[in-house]
Design a protein around this nucleic acid. Structure first.
Lengths: 110, 110
DNA sequence: TGCTCATGTTCAATTTGATGAACGTTAGTG
DNA sequence: CACTAACGTTCATCAAATTGAACATGAGCA
C-alpha cells in the first residue's frame, strides 16, 4: 500500500514556482494549454496539474513542459547544463562511492 | 495507449544534473541510499532511479529528495522560494487568463 | 587481505497517475 | 454585447511507476 505522502515546505514551494514559471512561459509565448500539452505529448489535464504545482506528475514530463515553455531549468540553457553535468560527474568520482555510516550520525538538526 | 516519450536534450540534462546533485548532497551528508529513501518515504529502488536521472519518478518525490539532501531548488531556500512564488503570482494576474491564438501562429516551423 | 554492508539491478504484484471525454465557466474578440 | 474558444474540473478505464524482495557486485574499513 502506498502511503499518503507529506512534503516539506521547500518542496511545495518549488513545485508551485515551477508550475507558475511554466504557465507564464506558455502564455508569454502565446500557446494554449492544448498547444503545449500536444507538444509535450501529454493531456491537457496533466498539464493543468503541472501548472498547478501538483506533486504527482512525472518529472520528465514536467521538465519537458518547462523546456518547451522556455523555462530555463537551473537558470541555465542546454550548453551550461551539459557543462554542469560534467562538473558534477567529476565531483562524484571524488566522493566515496559507498556511504559507510560512521558514529557521527546524520546530524539532522532543525 | 501511452506512447513512448521523447525528451529534449535540455530535459535530459536537467534530469541528470538534478539526480547528481541529490546523490552528491546525500553522500556529503553521510546518508546511505536507504536512509534518504526512508526519509523521503520511497523505496531505495525509486531513489536509485531518481539519482540516475530517470524521467519516470513523480516530481514531488524528486523535489522532496532534493530538499532532504540539502539541494537548493532554483538556487533558493524556503524563504526566497516563497517570495518568488508571490512575485510570480502577481505576474500571472497581469497576463491574459486565456490565450487566444491570433493569426500569427506560434510559428513552429516543423 | 578479508569481511561486511552499500550499491546496482531485475522482477511480479499492486498502487497510482495519465488519459480523454464531458460539462460548466470564463475571458478574449468582433 | 454576443459568441466562441480557452480554461477549470470531474470521472472511469488503462497503462505505467512503485514497491519489496532477491541476488550479485564492489567499496570501505579493521
Amino acid at each position: 500500500m502506498k502511503r499518503k505522502r507529506s512534503y516539506a515546505r521547500q518542496t511545495r514551494e518549488a513545485l508551485s514556482v515551477l508550475g507558475k514559471l511554466i504557465r507564464i512561459g506558455r502564455i508569454e509565448r502565446g500557446m494554449t494549454a492544448q498547444d503545449l500539452a500536444d507538444r509535450v505529448g501529454i493531456s491537457r489535464t496533466t498539464l493543468h496539474n503541472i501548472e498547478k504545482g501538483a506533486p504527482g506528475p512525472e518529472i520528465g514530463t514536467v521538465f519537458e513542459a518547462a523546456a518547451l515553455a522556455g523555462v530555463r531549468l537551473f537558470d541555465q540553457g542546454d550548453a551550461a547544463l551539459r557543462t554542469e553535468n560534467g562538473r558534477l560527474a567529476e565531483k562524484l568520482t571524488l566522493l566515496p562511492k559507498s556511504v559507510r555510516p560512521s558514529r557521527t550520525e546524520v546530524d539532522d538538526d532543525f
